[in-house]
Design a protein around this nucleic acid. Structure first.
Lengths: 242, 242
DNA sequence: TAAATAGTGTCTATGAGACATTATGTA
DNA sequence: TACATAATGTCTCATAGACACTATTTA
């Protein structure tokens, strides 16, 4: 069913009504691993409302006024906010939509519907965040501290749901590879699982599950060995890596 | 960190800027089972754009202008649209957010961010839909026909994702109980799994998995027997049922 | 040589799939 | 009695967890 001339005429003369509209924002739940701890990037709000409280980084969706340019996609808004807040090249960061949060009253200023995204930053990229970001008060906080923090807006609910999503994903998808450097050893990847799930992961059993990924071509051996204080470990890399 | 007087003063004098805002809509992917087929409720669009094409039912989010009344919650908007389109008591229908769809240009009229919801209607309630709905052209279409239909907007993408969600949920959650009447037999519930997953489900193995739910108190035996042309089956009910 | 950690092997319990068998109703 | 289907049982295989053991490097 292709667009008819009739429909084109309709669009050309279309006048949007002026029902009140909400603002649409994107919020980012950005995780990384530093010092063997799963951490979330939070910023201190410098303005009302919730001044001085911790909050998720984010921004507003840019909407165009014309029919030809309607503005940016939701995910583009998320990547733009990510780049602005962290200074990271957003194309190298894992990004996944978490959902829309649109309760009435969640922002006391005005009606805001927020679309939340989960982002995973590789630990080798995480250190540049605080230097490069335009938010001097951004910090990587341990997720274990989340329950005791009072976050702005409904950000506690959003971050809790994001944490759930990441924990489920580590066991069922390949997102763990977005929490290690481009090359990694099996013990390093096991450590990621252990830290995210907050439980000990048996080295032998983990290695067995991991070996299956080699046979299916998901990962492959990389050159070199990881030198430590004891026996060096084999280095691998994720095959579908940028 | 409680609201300070300072913050109250800020809110009292707050003036929202007038950046362009998108419209926010809710779209509903409503499933039921009729004639041993998983079906989706679609309506025929009577207006441009996509006139005469199939589309998901939905509606726009009601947004209040004042700070005290910001309008309805997203989920309330979804339930309201559900009730309006189907005539069903929306409180008795399973509803789950699927995600936000906000690509630029997805609605040719203007910028619309749509939050999609998945709804499951019990088959005993489904027949009243066409009579009660205000959309005379609403139809329960078999999901198998979806790929060959040209849906309006990005509704093909949304419905495909919804179908995935339901299929995953049938195997890992209790949503199958929202696709049978209040009481049901094991073979009837097995049929639901079979229809949703579009594959044969072994009666013996299914019964074994099902028995575990009795021991954990998820379901319980209901009075009576289901009389058929052969051996009657035991009737059960889901314990957390309204 | 000792310490530390990479890497392997084994045993067992659990759950899923395939499939055979029995039980109990209706026509 | 024939038939249909509910309900049970059995066998096998794949997988996960617990845990013992070996291998290899550095200090």
């Amino acid at each position: 069913m292709s667009r008819s001339a009739d429909e084109k005429a309709f669009l050309a003369s279309y006048q949007p009504n002026d029902c009140p509209r909400p603002s649409v924002a994107v919020d980012l739940v950005i995780f990384t691993i530093i010092d063997s701890q799963l951490r979330i990037l939070l910023i201190v709000r410098k303005e009302h409302p919730f001044k001085n409280a911790w909050a998720l980084p984010g921004g507003f969706l840019r909407v165009g006024e014309s029919t030809t340019d309607q503005g940016e996609d939701l995910e583009d808004a998320a990547r733009r906010a990510l780049q602005g807040e962290t200074g990271l090249d957003a194309s190298r960061v894992y990004l996944e939509q978490l959902g829309a949060f649109g309760a009435s009253g969640r922002d006391p200023r005005m009606r805001v519907v927020s679309v939340a995204y989960v982002a995973l930053v590789r630990p080798d990229l995480a250190p540049i965040v605080k230097a490069g970001g335009d938010e001097a008060d951004a910090q990587w906080l341990e997720v274990g501290k989340l329950p005791s923090l009072e976050l702005a807006f409904d950000h506690a609910e959003i971050s809790a749901k994001a944490l759930e999503r990441v924990r489920a994903g580590v066991e069922s998808t390949t997102i763990a590879f977005d929490l290690v450097p481009l090359t990694f050893t099996i013990p390093e990847l096991r450590q990621v699982h252990s830290v995210v799930l907050d439980k000990v992961v048996d080295p032998g059993n983990f290695r067995r599950k991991f070996s299956a990924l080699i046979e299916t071509g998901v990962i492959e051996q990389a050159p070199g060995k990881r030198i430590t204080a004891s026996k060096p470990a084999t280095v691998f890399r994720f095959v579908n890596r940028a």
